[in-house]
Design a binder for these strands. Structure first.
Lengths: 204, 204
DNA sequence: CGCAAATTGTCTACTAAATAGACACTTCAA
DNA sequence: TTGAAGTGTCTATTTAGTAGACAATTTGCG
Protein backbone atom coordinates (compact mmCIF):
# COMPACT_ATOMS: atom_id res chain seq x y z
CA UNK A 1 0.00 0.00 0.00
CA UNK A 2 3.05 2.20 0.27
CA UNK A 3 3.09 4.84 -2.40
CA UNK A 4 5.72 3.87 -4.92
CA UNK A 5 8.43 6.35 -5.81
CA UNK A 6 7.09 6.59 -9.31
CA UNK A 7 3.57 7.50 -8.36
CA UNK A 8 4.69 10.05 -5.81
CA UNK A 9 6.65 11.88 -8.51
CA UNK A 10 3.72 11.69 -10.88
CA UNK A 11 1.32 12.84 -8.21
CA UNK A 12 3.42 15.86 -7.49
CA UNK A 13 3.14 16.95 -11.08
CA UNK A 14 -0.56 16.24 -11.16
CA UNK A 15 -1.07 18.33 -8.08
CA UNK A 16 0.72 21.25 -9.66
CA UNK A 17 -1.47 20.99 -12.72
CA UNK A 18 -4.51 20.91 -10.45
CA UNK A 19 -3.37 24.00 -8.59
CA UNK A 20 -2.92 25.79 -11.88
CA UNK A 21 -6.45 24.87 -12.87
CA UNK A 22 -7.84 26.28 -9.62
CA UNK A 23 -6.07 29.58 -10.15
CA UNK A 24 -7.16 29.83 -13.74
CA UNK A 25 -10.81 29.06 -13.03
CA UNK A 26 -10.84 31.90 -10.54
CA UNK A 27 -9.19 34.14 -13.08
CA UNK A 28 -11.16 33.45 -16.23
CA UNK A 29 -13.68 30.69 -15.59
CA UNK A 30 -13.40 27.00 -16.41
CA UNK A 31 -14.87 27.44 -19.88
CA UNK A 32 -12.12 29.77 -21.01
CA UNK A 33 -9.20 27.82 -19.55
CA UNK A 34 -7.07 26.07 -22.17
CA UNK A 35 -4.51 23.33 -21.78
CA UNK A 36 -1.97 25.87 -22.95
CA UNK A 37 -2.95 28.19 -20.08
CA UNK A 38 -2.56 25.39 -17.60
CA UNK A 39 0.92 24.37 -18.67
CA UNK A 40 2.08 27.96 -18.93
CA UNK A 41 0.79 28.73 -15.48
CA UNK A 42 2.30 25.64 -13.92
CA UNK A 43 5.44 25.89 -16.05
CA UNK A 44 5.27 22.43 -17.57
CA UNK A 45 5.58 21.40 -21.15
CA UNK A 46 2.35 20.80 -23.01
CA UNK A 47 3.48 17.25 -23.69
CA UNK A 48 3.71 16.70 -19.97
CA UNK A 49 0.08 17.57 -19.55
CA UNK A 50 -0.98 14.89 -21.99
CA UNK A 51 1.15 12.29 -20.23
CA UNK A 52 -1.08 12.76 -17.21
CA UNK A 53 -4.48 13.77 -18.55
CA UNK A 54 -6.38 13.40 -21.76
CA UNK A 55 -7.84 16.88 -21.58
CA UNK A 56 -8.86 19.56 -19.11
CA UNK A 57 -12.07 17.74 -18.23
CA UNK A 58 -10.18 14.71 -16.97
CA UNK A 59 -7.97 17.00 -14.96
CA UNK A 60 -11.03 18.70 -13.51
CA UNK A 61 -12.61 15.37 -12.64
CA UNK A 62 -9.46 14.14 -10.96
CA UNK A 63 -9.18 17.32 -8.94
CA UNK A 64 -12.80 17.21 -7.80
CA UNK A 65 -12.73 13.52 -6.94
CA UNK A 66 -9.54 13.73 -4.94
CA UNK A 67 -10.78 16.70 -2.93
CA UNK A 68 -14.11 15.06 -2.14
CA UNK A 69 -12.32 11.83 -1.31
CA UNK A 70 -10.10 13.81 1.03
CA UNK A 71 -13.19 15.29 2.61
CA UNK A 72 -14.63 11.85 3.27
CA UNK A 73 -11.36 10.56 4.64
CA UNK A 74 -11.03 13.55 6.92
CA UNK A 75 -13.96 12.12 8.81
CA UNK A 76 -12.52 8.74 9.61
CA UNK A 77 -14.53 7.11 12.36
CA UNK A 78 -18.27 7.32 12.79
CA UNK A 79 -19.66 9.58 15.43
CA UNK A 80 -22.76 9.12 17.48
CA UNK A 81 -25.35 11.83 17.45
CA UNK A 82 -27.50 10.70 20.35
CA UNK A 83 -30.99 11.96 20.66
CA UNK A 84 -30.82 12.95 24.26
CA UNK A 85 -29.70 16.52 24.22
CA UNK A 86 -27.80 16.58 27.47
CA UNK A 87 -25.57 13.71 26.46
CA UNK A 88 -25.21 14.69 22.82
CA UNK A 89 -21.81 13.63 21.51
CA UNK A 90 -21.29 16.73 19.43
CA UNK A 91 -18.15 18.70 20.01
CA UNK A 92 -15.47 20.62 18.15
CA UNK A 93 -13.59 17.40 17.46
CA UNK A 94 -16.51 16.11 15.48
CA UNK A 95 -15.87 18.61 12.76
CA UNK A 96 -12.84 17.50 10.86
CA UNK A 97 -14.90 18.37 7.79
CA UNK A 98 -14.69 22.00 8.70
CA UNK A 99 -10.98 21.87 9.35
CA UNK A 100 -10.45 20.11 6.06
CA UNK A 101 -12.42 22.67 4.14
CA UNK A 102 -10.62 25.50 5.82
CA UNK A 103 -7.21 24.01 5.12
CA UNK A 104 -8.20 23.52 1.50
CA UNK A 105 -10.07 26.78 1.15
CA UNK A 106 -8.12 27.62 -1.98
CA UNK A 107 -10.02 24.80 -3.62
CA UNK A 108 -13.39 25.15 -1.93
CA UNK A 109 -13.61 28.82 -2.83
CA UNK A 110 -14.39 27.53 -6.31
CA UNK A 111 -18.00 27.17 -5.26
CA UNK A 112 -18.16 30.97 -5.31
CA UNK A 113 -17.88 30.89 -9.07
CA UNK A 114 -20.53 30.23 -11.66
CA UNK A 115 -18.32 28.93 -14.45
CA UNK A 116 -16.40 26.59 -12.21
CA UNK A 117 -15.39 22.92 -11.90
CA UNK A 118 -17.97 20.75 -13.66
CA UNK A 119 -20.20 18.94 -11.18
CA UNK A 120 -18.80 20.74 -8.17
CA UNK A 121 -22.17 22.21 -7.30
CA UNK A 122 -23.85 18.82 -7.33
CA UNK A 123 -21.17 16.48 -6.07
CA UNK A 124 -20.11 18.58 -3.11
CA UNK A 125 -23.51 18.53 -1.36
CA UNK A 126 -23.94 14.88 -2.24
CA UNK A 127 -20.69 14.10 -0.51
CA UNK A 128 -21.79 15.98 2.58
CA UNK A 129 -24.93 13.89 2.62
CA UNK A 130 -22.96 10.69 2.13
CA UNK A 131 -20.77 11.58 5.08
CA UNK A 132 -23.83 12.22 7.22
CA UNK A 133 -25.36 8.93 6.19
CA UNK A 134 -22.26 6.81 6.63
CA UNK A 135 -20.32 8.45 9.37
CA UNK A 136 -22.83 10.06 11.65
CA UNK A 137 -25.08 7.67 13.46
CA UNK A 138 -28.21 9.36 14.68
CA UNK A 139 -29.64 7.15 17.38
CA UNK A 140 -33.33 6.48 16.90
CA UNK A 141 -35.54 6.26 19.93
CA UNK A 142 -38.98 4.83 20.40
CA UNK A 143 -40.91 8.06 20.20
CA UNK A 144 -38.87 9.53 17.31
CA UNK A 145 -41.48 11.51 15.43
CA UNK A 146 -39.63 11.78 12.11
CA UNK A 147 -38.41 9.47 9.39
CA UNK A 148 -34.67 8.92 9.91
CA UNK A 149 -33.77 9.09 6.23
CA UNK A 150 -35.52 12.40 5.84
CA UNK A 151 -34.04 13.65 9.06
CA UNK A 152 -30.51 12.86 7.86
CA UNK A 153 -31.03 14.52 4.49
CA UNK A 154 -32.52 17.57 6.09
CA UNK A 155 -29.65 17.87 8.55
CA UNK A 156 -26.99 17.30 5.91
CA UNK A 157 -28.33 19.93 3.53
CA UNK A 158 -28.81 22.31 6.41
CA UNK A 159 -25.16 21.89 7.19
CA UNK A 160 -24.30 22.33 3.52
CA UNK A 161 -26.15 25.64 3.55
CA UNK A 162 -24.09 26.82 6.48
CA UNK A 163 -20.90 25.70 4.80
CA UNK A 164 -21.55 27.53 1.56
CA UNK A 165 -22.35 30.65 3.50
CA UNK A 166 -19.13 30.36 5.44
CA UNK A 167 -17.14 29.92 2.24
CA UNK A 168 -19.01 32.72 0.49
CA UNK A 169 -18.25 35.14 3.28
CA UNK A 170 -14.60 34.30 2.70
CA UNK A 171 -14.27 32.52 6.04
CA UNK A 172 -15.10 35.65 7.95
CA UNK A 173 -16.05 33.63 11.01
CA UNK A 174 -13.15 31.71 12.49
CA UNK A 175 -13.22 27.93 12.43
CA UNK A 176 -14.04 27.93 16.13
CA UNK A 177 -16.86 30.41 15.82
CA UNK A 178 -18.32 28.56 12.89
CA UNK A 179 -18.13 25.18 14.61
CA UNK A 180 -19.76 26.63 17.71
CA UNK A 181 -22.58 28.00 15.57
CA UNK A 182 -23.12 24.68 13.83
CA UNK A 183 -23.22 22.82 17.13
CA UNK A 184 -25.68 25.32 18.55
CA UNK A 185 -28.03 24.86 15.59
CA UNK A 186 -27.75 21.08 15.64
CA UNK A 187 -28.49 20.97 19.39
CA UNK A 188 -31.50 23.19 19.03
CA UNK A 189 -32.75 21.07 16.19
CA UNK A 190 -32.44 17.83 18.14
CA UNK A 191 -33.99 19.36 21.18
CA UNK A 192 -36.98 20.39 19.13
CA UNK A 193 -37.31 16.90 17.71
CA UNK A 194 -37.17 15.46 21.18
CA UNK A 195 -39.86 17.78 22.50
CA UNK A 196 -42.17 16.93 19.65
CA UNK A 197 -41.54 13.25 20.35
CA UNK A 198 -42.32 13.62 24.03
CA UNK A 199 -45.37 15.67 23.24
CA UNK A 200 -46.68 13.00 20.87
CA UNK A 201 -46.04 10.35 23.49
CA UNK A 202 -48.05 12.33 26.04
CA UNK A 203 -50.96 12.68 23.69
CA UNK A 204 -51.24 8.92 23.29
CA UNK B 1 18.37 36.16 -22.78
CA UNK B 2 15.68 33.58 -23.41
CA UNK B 3 15.32 31.24 -20.48
CA UNK B 4 16.82 27.91 -21.43
CA UNK B 5 14.78 24.78 -21.05
CA UNK B 6 17.08 23.55 -18.34
CA UNK B 7 16.87 26.63 -16.17
CA UNK B 8 13.11 26.85 -16.51
CA UNK B 9 12.81 23.32 -15.22
CA UNK B 10 15.24 24.02 -12.40
CA UNK B 11 13.46 27.23 -11.51
CA UNK B 12 10.19 25.44 -11.24
CA UNK B 13 11.62 23.14 -8.63
CA UNK B 14 13.26 26.01 -6.79
CA UNK B 15 9.95 27.83 -6.68
CA UNK B 16 8.26 24.84 -5.17
CA UNK B 17 10.93 24.62 -2.50
CA UNK B 18 10.44 28.32 -1.81
CA UNK B 19 6.70 27.92 -1.48
CA UNK B 20 7.24 25.12 0.99
CA UNK B 21 9.52 27.34 3.02
CA UNK B 22 6.89 30.08 3.16
CA UNK B 23 4.25 27.66 4.43
CA UNK B 24 6.56 26.17 7.00
CA UNK B 25 7.73 29.51 8.38
CA UNK B 26 4.11 30.43 8.97
CA UNK B 27 3.53 27.08 10.61
CA UNK B 28 6.53 26.75 12.93
CA UNK B 29 8.87 29.69 12.39
CA UNK B 30 12.05 29.83 10.30
CA UNK B 31 14.25 28.65 13.13
CA UNK B 32 12.45 25.35 13.49
CA UNK B 33 12.18 24.54 9.80
CA UNK B 34 14.45 21.71 8.69
CA UNK B 35 15.54 20.68 5.22
CA UNK B 36 13.65 17.49 5.86
CA UNK B 37 10.47 19.46 6.52
CA UNK B 38 10.92 21.37 3.30
CA UNK B 39 11.36 18.34 1.09
CA UNK B 40 8.54 16.48 2.77
CA UNK B 41 6.21 19.42 2.34
CA UNK B 42 7.16 20.00 -1.28
CA UNK B 43 7.36 16.28 -1.98
CA UNK B 44 10.90 16.24 -3.31
CA UNK B 45 13.75 13.99 -2.38
CA UNK B 46 16.22 15.38 0.11
CA UNK B 47 18.95 14.94 -2.48
CA UNK B 48 17.05 17.22 -4.77
CA UNK B 49 17.17 20.00 -2.23
CA UNK B 50 20.93 19.88 -2.09
CA UNK B 51 21.20 19.98 -5.87
CA UNK B 52 19.65 23.43 -5.70
CA UNK B 53 20.65 24.90 -2.36
CA UNK B 54 23.41 24.40 0.12
CA UNK B 55 21.14 24.81 3.10
CA UNK B 56 17.92 26.49 4.18
CA UNK B 57 19.64 29.85 4.54
CA UNK B 58 20.59 29.94 0.89
CA UNK B 59 17.05 29.01 0.01
CA UNK B 60 15.76 31.81 2.23
CA UNK B 61 18.15 34.29 0.66
CA UNK B 62 17.15 33.28 -2.83
CA UNK B 63 13.47 33.59 -1.99
CA UNK B 64 13.86 37.03 -0.42
CA UNK B 65 16.05 38.37 -3.21
CA UNK B 66 13.79 37.20 -5.97
CA UNK B 67 10.70 38.67 -4.34
CA UNK B 68 12.35 42.03 -3.74
CA UNK B 69 13.74 41.99 -7.27
CA UNK B 70 10.22 41.32 -8.50
CA UNK B 71 9.02 44.26 -6.47
CA UNK B 72 11.55 46.57 -8.07
CA UNK B 73 10.76 45.30 -11.52
CA UNK B 74 7.05 45.75 -10.95
CA UNK B 75 7.75 49.46 -10.97
CA UNK B 76 9.33 49.70 -14.37
CA UNK B 77 9.36 53.32 -15.49
CA UNK B 78 9.99 56.35 -13.29
CA UNK B 79 7.05 58.48 -12.31
CA UNK B 80 7.02 62.17 -11.68
CA UNK B 81 5.75 63.44 -8.38
CA UNK B 82 5.41 67.13 -9.20
CA UNK B 83 5.33 69.60 -6.44
CA UNK B 84 2.31 71.52 -7.59
CA UNK B 85 -0.58 69.84 -5.90
CA UNK B 86 -3.24 70.46 -8.49
CA UNK B 87 -1.19 68.81 -11.25
CA UNK B 88 0.29 66.06 -9.13
CA UNK B 89 0.94 62.97 -11.24
CA UNK B 90 -0.20 60.54 -8.63
CA UNK B 91 -2.86 58.08 -9.58
CA UNK B 92 -3.88 54.50 -9.15
CA UNK B 93 -1.63 53.44 -12.01
CA UNK B 94 1.40 54.61 -10.10
CA UNK B 95 1.03 51.83 -7.63
CA UNK B 96 2.21 48.68 -9.25
CA UNK B 97 4.02 48.08 -5.98
CA UNK B 98 0.73 47.60 -4.25
CA UNK B 99 -0.61 45.30 -6.91
CA UNK B 100 2.57 43.26 -6.77
CA UNK B 101 2.39 42.93 -3.01
CA UNK B 102 -1.23 41.96 -3.13
CA UNK B 103 -0.65 39.36 -5.81
CA UNK B 104 2.22 37.95 -3.77
CA UNK B 105 0.52 38.32 -0.42
CA UNK B 106 1.28 34.73 0.47
CA UNK B 107 4.91 35.79 0.64
CA UNK B 108 4.55 39.26 2.08
CA UNK B 109 2.44 38.00 4.96
CA UNK B 110 5.74 36.72 6.31
CA UNK B 111 6.38 40.15 7.77
CA UNK B 112 3.64 39.35 10.28
CA UNK B 113 5.92 36.82 11.88
CA UNK B 114 8.74 37.34 14.33
CA UNK B 115 10.80 34.27 13.53
CA UNK B 116 10.62 34.76 9.81
CA UNK B 117 12.85 35.06 6.73
CA UNK B 118 16.27 36.40 7.77
CA UNK B 119 16.73 40.03 6.78
CA UNK B 120 13.15 40.44 5.61
CA UNK B 121 12.45 43.15 8.15
CA UNK B 122 15.46 45.19 7.04
CA UNK B 123 15.66 44.52 3.32
CA UNK B 124 12.00 45.08 2.59
CA UNK B 125 11.90 48.71 3.78
CA UNK B 126 15.27 49.35 2.15
CA UNK B 127 13.86 48.19 -1.14
CA UNK B 128 10.88 50.49 -0.78
CA UNK B 129 13.28 53.36 -0.19
CA UNK B 130 15.41 52.35 -3.19
CA UNK B 131 12.33 52.36 -5.38
CA UNK B 132 11.37 55.80 -4.15
CA UNK B 133 14.87 57.11 -4.78
CA UNK B 134 15.30 55.59 -8.22
CA UNK B 135 11.86 55.46 -9.68
CA UNK B 136 9.98 58.36 -8.22
CA UNK B 137 11.24 61.76 -9.24
CA UNK B 138 10.10 64.44 -6.83
CA UNK B 139 10.45 67.74 -8.63
CA UNK B 140 12.28 70.32 -6.53
CA UNK B 141 11.17 73.92 -6.72
CA UNK B 142 12.91 77.13 -5.74
CA UNK B 143 11.17 77.60 -2.42
CA UNK B 144 11.34 73.94 -1.38
CA UNK B 145 11.76 74.19 2.38
CA UNK B 146 13.12 70.66 2.97
CA UNK B 147 16.16 68.64 2.05
CA UNK B 148 15.18 66.35 -0.85
CA UNK B 149 17.09 63.34 0.43
CA UNK B 150 15.36 63.55 3.78
CA UNK B 151 12.05 64.19 2.12
CA UNK B 152 12.38 61.03 0.05
CA UNK B 153 13.36 58.89 3.02
CA UNK B 154 10.54 60.26 5.09
CA UNK B 155 8.03 59.62 2.35
CA UNK B 156 9.32 56.12 1.62
CA UNK B 157 9.20 55.00 5.24
CA UNK B 158 5.83 56.60 5.65
CA UNK B 159 4.63 54.48 2.78
CA UNK B 160 6.32 51.44 4.30
CA UNK B 161 4.36 52.04 7.49
CA UNK B 162 1.12 52.05 5.58
CA UNK B 163 2.10 48.90 3.73
CA UNK B 164 2.92 46.91 6.85
CA UNK B 165 -0.35 47.98 8.38
CA UNK B 166 -2.24 46.87 5.28
CA UNK B 167 -0.48 43.51 5.34
CA UNK B 168 -0.96 43.11 9.09
CA UNK B 169 -4.67 43.70 8.80
CA UNK B 170 -4.71 40.82 6.33
CA UNK B 171 -5.54 43.10 3.39
CA UNK B 172 -8.80 44.15 4.95
CA UNK B 173 -8.94 47.26 2.79
CA UNK B 174 -9.25 46.49 -0.90
CA UNK B 175 -6.39 47.42 -3.19
CA UNK B 176 -8.44 50.34 -4.49
CA UNK B 177 -9.30 51.64 -1.04
CA UNK B 178 -5.71 51.34 0.09
CA UNK B 179 -4.33 53.11 -2.99
CA UNK B 180 -6.86 55.90 -2.55
CA UNK B 181 -5.78 56.31 1.05
CA UNK B 182 -2.10 56.44 0.13
CA UNK B 183 -2.73 59.04 -2.56
CA UNK B 184 -4.78 61.13 -0.15
CA UNK B 185 -1.97 61.12 2.40
CA UNK B 186 0.71 61.88 -0.17
CA UNK B 187 -1.31 64.81 -1.57
CA UNK B 188 -1.87 66.28 1.87
CA UNK B 189 1.79 65.91 2.65
CA UNK B 190 2.89 67.70 -0.50
CA UNK B 191 0.32 70.39 -0.01
CA UNK B 192 1.68 71.02 3.47
CA UNK B 193 5.21 71.25 2.15
CA UNK B 194 4.09 73.70 -0.51
CA UNK B 195 2.32 75.94 2.00
CA UNK B 196 5.34 76.01 4.25
CA UNK B 197 7.47 76.89 1.23
CA UNK B 198 5.14 79.71 0.20
CA UNK B 199 4.96 80.97 3.76
CA UNK B 200 8.76 81.07 3.99
CA UNK B 201 8.90 82.91 0.68
CA UNK B 202 6.46 85.53 1.97
CA UNK B 203 8.49 86.10 5.12
CA UNK B 204 11.56 86.97 3.10
C1' DC C 1 25.16 14.91 32.13
C1' DG C 2 25.38 11.20 28.27
C1' DC C 3 23.51 8.46 24.82
C1' DA C 4 20.22 7.44 21.02
C1' DA C 5 17.69 9.46 17.46
C1' DA C 6 17.27 12.79 14.11
C1' DT C 7 19.21 15.79 10.89
C1' DT C 8 22.84 17.35 7.87
C1' DG C 9 25.75 17.72 3.83
C1' DT C 10 28.06 15.14 0.19
C1' DC C 11 28.39 11.48 -3.36
C1' DT C 12 27.30 7.99 -6.85
C1' DA C 13 24.63 5.46 -10.11
C1' DC C 14 20.15 4.93 -12.07
C1' DT C 15 15.63 5.90 -14.30
C1' DA C 16 11.63 7.77 -15.61
C1' DA C 17 9.60 12.26 -15.84
C1' DA C 18 9.74 16.07 -18.55
C1' DT C 19 11.10 18.10 -22.89
C1' DA C 20 11.22 19.61 -27.95
C1' DG C 21 9.33 19.25 -31.97
C1' DA C 22 6.61 17.53 -35.64
C1' DC C 23 2.00 16.25 -37.43
C1' DA C 24 -2.80 16.52 -38.81
C1' DC C 25 -6.94 18.28 -37.15
C1' DT C 26 -10.35 21.58 -35.16
C1' DT C 27 -11.95 26.20 -33.69
C1' DC C 28 -12.81 30.70 -34.17
C1' DA C 29 -12.23 35.63 -35.18
C1' DA C 30 -10.93 39.29 -38.46
C1' DT D 1 -12.09 32.68 -46.07
C1' DT D 2 -8.08 32.44 -44.25
C1' DG D 3 -4.70 32.27 -40.83
C1' DA D 4 -3.70 32.27 -35.98
C1' DA D 5 -4.32 29.63 -31.90
C1' DG D 6 -5.31 25.56 -29.71
C1' DT D 7 -5.75 20.33 -29.64
C1' DG D 8 -4.36 15.55 -29.19
C1' DT D 9 -0.85 12.10 -30.39
C1' DC D 10 3.77 10.43 -31.11
C1' DT D 11 8.88 9.75 -30.91
C1' DA D 12 13.57 10.48 -29.47
C1' DT D 13 16.36 12.78 -26.13
C1' DT D 14 18.03 14.78 -21.64
C1' DT D 15 18.36 15.63 -17.30
C1' DA D 16 16.08 16.48 -13.09
C1' DG D 17 14.90 13.80 -9.47
C1' DT D 18 15.64 9.51 -6.92
C1' DA D 19 17.51 5.96 -3.56
C1' DG D 20 20.76 4.91 -0.60
C1' DA D 21 24.96 5.06 1.84
C1' DC D 22 28.32 7.78 4.45
C1' DA D 23 30.45 10.39 8.33
C1' DA D 24 29.65 14.39 10.96
C1' DT D 25 26.63 17.19 13.76
C1' DT D 26 22.88 18.48 16.42
C1' DT D 27 19.04 17.62 19.29
C1' DG D 28 16.52 16.27 23.07
C1' DC D 29 15.19 12.76 26.46
C1' DG D 30 15.81 10.04 30.62
Amino acid sequence: MAETLATSRRNRTKEHLQLALIDLIKEKGFQAVTVKDIVEHSKYNRSTFYIHYHDKFYLAEDLLNSMLKGLEEAVAKPYEMRKKVDTVKLNANSFEIITYIYENRNFFELINFQDTLPELHTKFPKTILKIYQEKFQFKTVNNMPVDMDYFTRYTAYGFYGLLTHWINTRFEATQEEFIAEVIRLARTHMEAVKYVGDFNTLKQ
